[in-house]
Design a protein around this nucleic acid. Sequence first.
DNA 1: TCCGTACATGCAATCGATTGCGCACAAATC
DNA 2: GATTTGTGCGCAATCGATTGCATGTACGGA
Lengths: 341, 341
Amino acid sequence: MKKKSKTTIHDIANKLGITASTVSRALNNHPRISENTKKLVMETAKEINYKPNQIAVALRNGRSKLIGITVPTVNRNFFSSVVRGIEAFVNKRGYKVIISQSYDDYEKEKETINALLDARVDGIMVSIGKQTKDLSHFQSVINKGIPLVFFDRVNHELPVSQVVINDRKAAYQLTKHLIQQGYRKIAHFTSATKINIYAERLQGYLDALTEHGIAINPDLIMESNMQLEDGKECVQRLLDKGMGFDAIFSSSDYGIVGAMQTLRKYNVRIPQEVGLAGFGNEPFTEFTSPALTTVDQVSIPMGEETAKMFFDLMENDPYQKYPKKIVLEPRIIIRESSLRQ
Amino acid sequence: MKKKSKTTIHDIANKLGITASTVSRALNNHPRISENTKKLVMETAKEINYKPNQIAVALRNGRSKLIGITVPTVNRNFFSSVVRGIEAFVNKRGYKVIISQSYDDYEKEKETINALLDARVDGIMVSIGKQTKDLSHFQSVINKGIPLVFFDRVNHELPVSQVVINDRKAAYQLTKHLIQQGYRKIAHFTSATKINIYAERLQGYLDALTEHGIAINPDLIMESNMQLEDGKECVQRLLDKGMGFDAIFSSSDYGIVGAMQTLRKYNVRIPQEVGLAGFGNEPFTEFTSPALTTVDQVSIPMGEETAKMFFDLMENDPYQKYPKKIVLEPRIIIRESSLRQ
DNA sequence: TCCGTACATGCAATCGATTGCGCACAAATC
DNA sequence: GATTTGTGCGCAATCGATTGCATGTACGGA
């Protein structure tokens, strides 16, 4: 067991009989340091296994090279993939990522944002939680001049740059697909429509119905928290009320799987009697039988774009005077659950 | 838009006409500071919205209050839940977590460990990647006296404390259950058995067969990477070879779902003709039809125990002279896929 | 009145790396 | 030969918080 070896530039300096200043400059390839000295410093650094103390660097430079990410939960294919996209991109530029989860809880979200601020991250990327009403915690990020980017679940009241997908278009296309498959009484499962993504998806659904001259039946639009159980419940309610429906488009894959389970219990044939479509391209949508039609939210590219946006903000516009918005095109994935022709 | 407000203890000191030393001591509740001064300092701190610069604190104290976690991927219910358990526990003590993913790649794992070391984390928690052969990157963590804890996918060559579940027992119980359901020709899907968890699970499977006097058929033990596609392939191979089998116990939920899909293609009835059981309690095991029998790996408790272990190491034995091992009891979840009686 | 003691606070170094300024010496220019 | 220009490096301050030691004051006891 060796001692806690903490080699510093001073160790290198002592070994070579020069000062720490020179070592620092040599390591940073400063033009006023001779090639010879640089070589010596580099060699010695390697020899004594020197690693810069990032904390000291951070204190001195005011940059921690840490980026904070807050998502509702990392336990969702979409979010974990976005994080992966972000990570891959920022790692290349020497940044590390702190991931924190809000669990869709407002208080917890505030806490995580403050914790990230405490940790002196250089930037924050957020997908807003479902419960979040007040936005002052984000405002204080902006006030501090720390680059902030929203992705997927965003908010338009604050001047914050954002990366989203074209939810409305995806919902429109998917609904249109259902119509083309001959479904006419299409139900829609949605969540709190104060959240941008659900509002957009609902709108896309309405667009398609309207375009095809199908009357909108408000009773077929069910709002819930969109978890598995909610999906079951919503279908149950539709059945109980004797509401005729021949398809369901759910804004969440969890909701549609729940629906599927309940329908199966009643021996409803899918897709012959009822067509199903979800949203999110969770891996399990491929596992069900029949496999579920869904929408891929291009998570990796979204992560990359979010990261790019951060660097752009940091370099050009930390106070977000000119918020930008990037809209990515989602990808419709048609599977058996909605194919009856 | 306000200026980048960076309030320091000096701002408080100036405002009150005292020195930063006094402010620091007041904030840390030092006994030699008068109650009156403390009160004034606290009030002023609140007033100007002072937040300690954790980076400066970290530099001075040599503790960053950051903990690094490396997992193969966060996009797995088990790992993300363990992380959640760790997070909940360490947050209570003022620590934050940096999550990094190795994607089961050896080089990437080394990189992440080094990156965490660079970030000067106070401790590291790891679930080892599948490809990892060499362990020198972990050795250097130990050498630096940084507390290291392995969980789930561990290694016994290094003197490192660890938290695992009783994989062998779970596999034994599950296999026994299959036997009790009348299955006799039970196949086992496993992954590289140099990895502790797969070796243990295989052993538990063998234990149960032996105990019940069932001959072990090596052709029924299939090794693969255990993803969805691997599961399909393994079943296909069994079918092609005309291997008689009436049940499959897979060491991964992904493998068993793949198997299920292929079996369904051949109209094999589950669980009547073939019983299925997986491992991991991924959420989707509940969604399939029939729902899948599996094993819950008590992820949240595992995270908590891992965190406890870290604090214990930090306070008592950072060089891990006396590695400990905690074994948690997993929970068997019996569902339709293995119930034919 | 003198001294020891407790109490409240200040001074200055420290953690490790960075950087503006300045100094010494050499080479180039007139 | 005198002056300018350039090169290579050291000094010391800085980032913000912490802490060992020193200082100053008040108070009680002798």
